[in-house]
Amino acid sequence: MTVRLEELLRQAFPDATELAVEDRTGGGDHFQVIVASPRLSGLSLVEQHRLVYDALAEPLADGTIHELRIKTRGDD
C-alpha cells in the first residue's frame, strides 16, 4: 500500500526533493507521509496539506487510509 501512496504523491509532486511514506503501525492503514517540493513553496501549511489530501483523495475516500499524518515543506 505504501507503494501506491508513493506513486500518487509522485504524480502530484513530480519534482519532490523528499518524498516518503511510512506505514506507522504495519497494518496498512495508518500512514505518515513526508513531502518536500518546490510546488509547496510560498503556501500556507493548510494549503500544503490540502494538496497532499488532493493527491491521496481516492485512498482517503475508499477507506484505505484510516489515519494520515502529514509533514510538508516548500523547497526552492
Binding site: 501549511l45 493548510v46 496539506h49 499524518r69 502529514i70 509533514k71
Partner: peptide, 10 residues
C-alpha cells in the same frame, strides 16, 4: 482554519 493535528502540533 488553522489545520489538523499535524499542523497545530507543529
Amino acid at each position: 482554519l488553522v489545520g489538523g493535528a499535524d499542523i497545530v502540533q507543529e
